[in-house]
Design a protein around this nucleic acid. Sequence first.
DNA 1: GGTCAGGTTCCATATATCGGAATCTTTGGT
DNA 2: ACCAAAGATTCCGATATATGGAACCTGACC
Lengths: 272, 272
Amino acid sequence: MTTKSEMSRLEGDTPAQRLLALLEVIAGKDQFFTLQGMVEETGLPKPTLHRMLQQLETSGMLQREADGRHYSKGSRLRRLAESLLLNDTVHGARHAVLRKLVDEVGESCNITALSGGEVLYLDRVETSAPLRFYLHPGSRVPVHCSASGKLFLAQMAPAQRRRLLNELSLESFTRNTLIDPEALEAEIEAVRRQGYAFDDEEFLPGLLCIAVLAPNPDGPSNTGLAIQAPIMRMTRDKALACLPALQRAAEQIAAINREALSDAAQAAAGDR
Amino acid sequence: MTTKSEMSRLEGDTPAQRLLALLEVIAGKDQFFTLQGMVEETGLPKPTLHRMLQQLETSGMLQREADGRHYSKGSRLRRLAESLLLNDTVHGARHAVLRKLVDEVGESCNITALSGGEVLYLDRVETSAPLRFYLHPGSRVPVHCSASGKLFLAQMAPAQRRRLLNELSLESFTRNTLIDPEALEAEIEAVRRQGYAFDDEEFLPGLLCIAVLAPNPDGPSNTGLAIQAPIMRMTRDKALACLPALQRAAEQIAAINREALSDAAQAAAGDR
DNA sequence: GGTCAGGTTCCATATATCGGAATCTTTGGT
DNA sequence: ACCAAAGATTCCGATATATGGAACCTGACC
């Protein structure tokens, strides 16, 4: 239970983003809620919130009880959520591949993408082993000290890579973090030749990762696939033994992406 | 498959509503989509759409593939949808009651609310019998010719009721529709005394309904519960035989509402 | 009938949106 | 290598919208 003082003002710089943040707060409510309650929870001014809720109500996203002061989720909002989850076979298929990979190698695995100069965790399946690193989907990690980050860097044009690394500056996290530009450049060159990358305690002490990219014949890939394990259970050699399984999974994910792209093209063509 | 010409411009009078409408379109996509594709589908101008998608992307609601032109649903959007559906035990509980009622009486039932002077279908469970009226949640029906509508009218103050009925004017749908104000007033008086209401082919020919309200000791109720059946299988007498089951279900729904309200109050108190 | 806790409305100001047009970028063809 | 053509992105002034403090309602309770 959070107290009023801990509550953060709804972040967001545009009205649209504020609205989405409000929806997230509403989504977490399992009961009726009131204008006043929302004011206390979000820190937004009362008239502002009143207007937003009113718009949501007239759109059918919310509905009010007879007393006029308790809101609850409307059928349109529910339908939106259902539609979002139902029409997401791409994610579902990717997730299934991930799960199978975790089964095979026995360690936590995740799917990553490059977003805004950082590595973004798209999805993750945890190992069943009791000792784990807890890293959740949606979190971000610097490019220069993650296995998939180095792969993304390796497929960039040198100028593009230099620009990005200059902007971000190489922060050090452990004593293995590569902060010397030349050493990093050499590592990236090696990664490009190999087609896979390690993160050997470069970001978190005790965490070893190995990653590959989902191959994309039409250009750079924005889908990385990694195994992450505590060094207690994992060495570079063991990781290399998992490489074939990892590459097989990456190929499957690439196939899913290809299919989704061609389906999209088809749909567009059908609309003409 | 819809053609370009059939596509309707995204409805909505405020930017917020337009954004929600856009989200609904996106929710229905099971693959990657492009700016251009969205332009064709929604009819919105390209720069406008570009801005909206950009905002959604920087919020983490969407993500782009490496090619920079294909979007897909982001993890934050997925989490939003999951949260919406997970935290909705109120609806879930209501729905369960509804389903049980349908089992008992063997006919389609629905939950309604008064919204903007009309009866709104909140939820509906269909009978398994092959002959059915197809009426979906979210649709609206005039108050004066629906069973739950008449119940909502019956609990209003006379002045309030007169104002509402004046504004709406009594449209006729079948030869049973009550369009004479005095006849309607008499019917409403009877409904108040009985505590239940019929709709005997007053809205759709061949459709008979019986409804009650979920009792609310603290004031007027905004939750109606109705059985709807084709006259092929239903008479007033048969409907009356279902009344006890209907009232039992209504009481259960009232209990769910009460609980949700008190939980909400509790949560608010805990935040102090 | 007075008080108080919400809810609602007002309104001058600040801000975001809008979208046609221009511009940049990528793609595909020769 | 070059050149369209399609698509993405940026610009920007006119316009519509959001903003939120303050004032105003409303109903519940004493």
